[in-house]
Amino acid sequence: MACIESLKYDIILQGASFKECRDFVRANCSEFVTVDPGFRIFEKAIIGVPPILIGLDGDVITFPFTKPCYGTYLLRTENPAEAARIRALKK
């Protein structure tokens, strides 16, 4: 599985707060999963202020990604296997 920085992704929000990321996912994604910090997405432990929302639209995943020097981004990428794994958490 690819690491996040090698994925082909779109930046939806940049320098966002986790509340802004949550609000965006709630308003714009057809479904979402709530996870705790440390949940692994693309093999990387997710950083953030809980609750962390990961959005799903078919095979497209919308998720926050934090870097120490650059703050938090909301990214969107298509990955059928990872979307299915995350969607399965809802059941």
Binding site: D36, I47, G48, T66
Partner: peptide, 15 residues
């Protein structure tokens, strides 16, 4: 000293 630091702190506290 920035929002990212808050995110790391929240993550460590939660974990």
């Amino acid at each position: 000293h920035n929002d990212a630091g808050v995110s790391y702190a929240a993550t460590i506290q939660s974990i």
